[in-house]
């Protein structure tokens, strides 16, 4: 620890920040309508209502903003949950938070509630996410070990996904049942600034709460008693972690469905690079998550232009083998 560490962290964040900016720009330039890059950037900044400007401002810009914000949310909440639960597998997707948020969102949209009252969408998703966190905590709280947490997460995820599928199958709209895949795998296709406006405030408040966890998470690495003796309030830590996750993940899922693995993969890659300090991991994971989701969203448009390949497919294709590799690494390290 010391000066060199601090400089390394700044460099890491600068590097990640540069990647996010670069991927954000590339994300703006990728789409089914192949537009010349310079002309489309000019239209974005100075266009006057022509078709290129509409595509850049109303279709691609909100999509890129959402990819950035949702990626940051998933990376940040993954890092925060792993620190708070002191469990390397804690992640909003794996522990059932995303799935229960999706259930809340589905109930808001397909009952018609969100047509009467648009804020019902993020609020119900947030409520679902909150219920998910609390149930998993009740089932696997008290730092009861990795297996219990994962089992509780699997149970909550399966139940919430089944309820989501049921709700969509019961909808009188023939298209609803086809949309199960959107809620279970996530997509940013044809999102607009309406979605940004609905989700961004909740995500921002969630980020602020989760960022406030830094010092407590560092202290918690020494154990709960030691942390308490250092003046860390366990109740406050719990409140920040639970509400911060529910707000940011709930809002993210409400507009893009449940996207898995980002919150797992990103903190794992970055943890050794921040000297295993949970407080530093928060910012780094937020940047890394944004970069990963922007890259995934570029990927779905390059691989299958105009066909709405779901984001969760790509994040799982990258995330699941990485996860397996992680398991092998941990086994090798153990005698």
């Amino acid at each position: 620890m010391g000066e060199t560490d601090g400089r390394g962290f700044v460099l890491l964040c600068a590097g990640l920040g540069f990647m996010v900016v670069l991927l954000f720009l590339i994300s703006l330039l990728v789409g089914p309508a192949s537009l010349p890059p310079m002309e489309s950037l000019r239209a974005l900044l100075a266009g006057e209502g022509d078709a290129t400007a509409i595509v850049m401002r109303e279709i691609r810009l909100p999509r890129s903003i959402l990819a950035l914000m949702i990626g940051a949310t998933l990376g940040l909440s993954g890092a925060a949950l792993q620190g708070y639960l002191r469990n390397p597998l804690a992640e909003p997707g794996l522990i059932g938070v995303s799935a229960s948020a999706a259930l809340g969102a589905v109930l808001a949209i397909y009952t018609g509630l969100s047509l009467l009252f648009p804020l019902a969408l993020p609020l119900m998703a947030l409520g679902g996410a909150l219920a998910g966190v609390l149930i998993v905590q009740a089932l696997a709280g008290g730092y009861s070990g990795t297996i219990t947490l994962i089992l509780a997460g699997v149970a909550v995820t399966s139940l919430a996904s089944a309820m989501t599928s049921l709700a969509l199958n019961l909808s009188p709209n023939p298209f609803a049942a086809l949309e199960i895949v959107f809620w279970l795998l996530g997509s940013l296709s044809d999102r607009s600034f309406v979605h940004v406006q609905l989700a961004a405030p909740f995500m921002l408040i969630g980020w602020v709460l989760l960022a406030g966890l830094g010092r407590s998470l560092d202290a918690l690495t020494l154990g709960e008693d030691a942390a308490a003796s250092l003046g860390v309030s366990i109740a406050r830590t719990k409140l920040l972690a639970v509400v911060g996750t529910a707000l940011s993940v709930g809002a993210a899922v409400a507009v893009a469905g449940a996207i898995g693995f980002v919150g797992l993969v990103v903190p794992h890659i970055l943890r050794p690079l921040v000297g295993n300090r949970p407080s530093r991991l928060l910012l780094a994971s937020a940047l890394g998550g944004a970069a990963m989701l922007l890259a995934a969203d570029i990927g779905v448009r390059v691989i299958a232009p105009g066909q709405d390949l779901k984001l969760g497919v790509l994040t799982a294709v990258v995330g699941a083998p990485f996860f397996l590799w992680l398991v092998l690494q941990t086994r090798r390290q153990m005698p």
């Binding site: 949209i109 969100s114 709209n173 298209f175 609803a176 949309e179 959107f182």
Partner: peptide, 9 residues
């Protein structure tokens, strides 16, 4: 459609 779905969004 008379019941909402993302398809119409």
């Amino acid at each position: 459609y008379r019941a909402p779905a993302l398809a119409f969004e």
